[in-house]
Amino acid sequence: MEQLLQQIASGLASGAIYACVALALVMIFTATEHLNFAQGEMAMFSTYLCWQLLQWGLGFWTALAIAAGLSFIIGVLIERIILRPLQGASALSVVVVFIGLLAIFHSMAGAIWSHTIKTFPSPFPEVAFAGSGIIGAHQIGMVAVTILMLSALFAFFRFTTLGLAMRAAAQNPTSARLVGVNVDWMLALGWGLAAAIGAVAGAMVAPVVYLEPNMMSSILLYGFAGALVGGISSPGGAVFGGFLVGVLENLVAYFGNLTEKMFGVYIIGNGEKLSVALIIVITILTLKPAGLFGHVITKRV
């Protein structure tokens, strides 16, 4: 039983990361209807930036804030310079550009910081507390930071004029333009925010998975799965989906282990993590493309 609780707790912790990535994906999707395949690599690159700042002797939170700020700028620049000219281009062109970005970020990180695995410090102290057998300090910290960031984002979108303008630009660009919202810049800001969220997610997960250029590849896939489960057009749904997928992933591994122990048959385990994500993605896409909370997209002919 304790093991099960442990698995759920660590599922929630990794779910927090998937939720962040899913949210970043949804932010870009609602604004531009693009699925950003480079999101994971961008987050990985931001994490390296953070690591570099840490190496230069900055404190963890300062380093993270600067890295998030830099990522914000990178995100805005990418939207303004690379994606802006592609407005109205075919899906294939956009996908190809994303793959190009993925390749560039991946190899640049490898070139600048080498492919060797690096440890990444956790900002949370290793203290023992009631229930620390079930959930570690860093895991609680991950969840807390995620929830804090999500609340801040929610407040930003709900209570500030800029947030309102960004929502308007994403939902109805034409009308937003008519009431004086600079839609182009709102899209760029959306990209910047997504990149900054990615930076935080990366810095939170790096102490667990270690820092290396491939660290985000499976996380990105789970982020996609989470976004799809919740509904790719619903930010709240994406966050919920991220947590759900995180717990699901750990439970699958747990019950896989259990069946192996009880019946001696190996069906599924940690080695099949990505296959589980694949199955989730394809099942959701075929059975319920709008996800749990997304609105159904109707096509007018």
């Binding site: 209807e33 693009h34 699925l35 395949f37 899906a91 956009v94 996908v95 590849s217 499976s218 896939l221 996609f224 799965a225 799809l228 080695g271 099949e272 993590k273 990505l274 296959s275 994500a277 694949l278 993605v281 394809i282 896409l285 075929t286 493309p289």
Partner: peptide, 24 residues
Amino acid sequence: RLEGHYLALATFALATAVPQILKY
């Protein structure tokens, strides 16, 4: 049932999972 970006996503998931499936 999938078009454009969604199909790209489904196939992206397939491509990422291939090495793991082969090691099953």
